[in-house]
Simulated assay, not measured.
Amino acid sequence: MSEVTFDLEEALAEVLAAHERGMLARAVVVAEVLDTDGDRSLSVLTTPGVPEWDALCLCRYAVLSIEALRPRSSSGMTSDRPGTRHGCGT
């Protein structure tokens, strides 16, 4: 594992403990990153020891949780917020 994943685990554990949210077991972090040229990319990091299939399951569960919170229109379709495309930031 890289040093970044160990630092990520430590930082998340500290934040969760400081806000009394429990003990970190494992995590997947999806972050949009800007490089020095201003180009955007997506970075997916996991805490050490998270197998790929567990990371996928955690991400899918998060998507389902977010979708469940989105308001639905009278047609039953989810409504996009202004300034977004299909629920994703532009």
Rank of each mutant, 00 (worst) to 15 (best):
P51Y: 05
T5W: 10
L42G: 00
G89P: 07
S43W: 07
A55G: 04
E20L: 07
D7W: 04
L45P: 00
A13S: 15
P51N: 05
T47H: 00
R40M: 04
A18R: 15
F6D: 05
W53H: 09
P51R: 05
P48F: 04
V29C: 06
S2G: 11
W53R: 09
S43N: 07
Y61H: 08
D35R: 14
A68H: 10
P82F: 08
D35A: 13
R40L: 06
D54W: 04
A62E: 08
R70E: 15
S75R: 13
A17T: 10
G76M: 10
G76Y: 07
T47S: 01
R40K: 03
C59Y: 00
W53Y: 06
V50E: 01
P48K: 03
T46L: 00
L24V: 06
W53C: 02
V28Y: 05
D37G: 12
Y61Q: 08
E32S: 08
R70Q: 14
T90S: 09
A27F: 00
V44T: 09
V15T: 06
A68W: 03
D37W: 14
C88Y: 12
L8F: 03
M23Y: 02
V33H: 11
G22S: 10
L8W: 02
R40Q: 04
S75Y: 07
G76K: 09
S41M: 02
T46C: 01
T84V: 09
S65L: 11
G87R: 03
M1Q: 11
W53A: 04
L56D: 09
S75A: 10
V29A: 06
E14Q: 12
S65R: 11
C88W: 10
D35Y: 15
E3C: 05
V63Q: 06
M1D: 14
V4P: 01
V29I: 10
V50R: 01
H86T: 05
R26D: 07
G89E: 05
F6P: 01
H19L: 11
T47C: 00
V50A: 02
G22K: 12
L12D: 01
G22I: 13
P51F: 01
D7S: 01
L24F: 01
R72S: 09
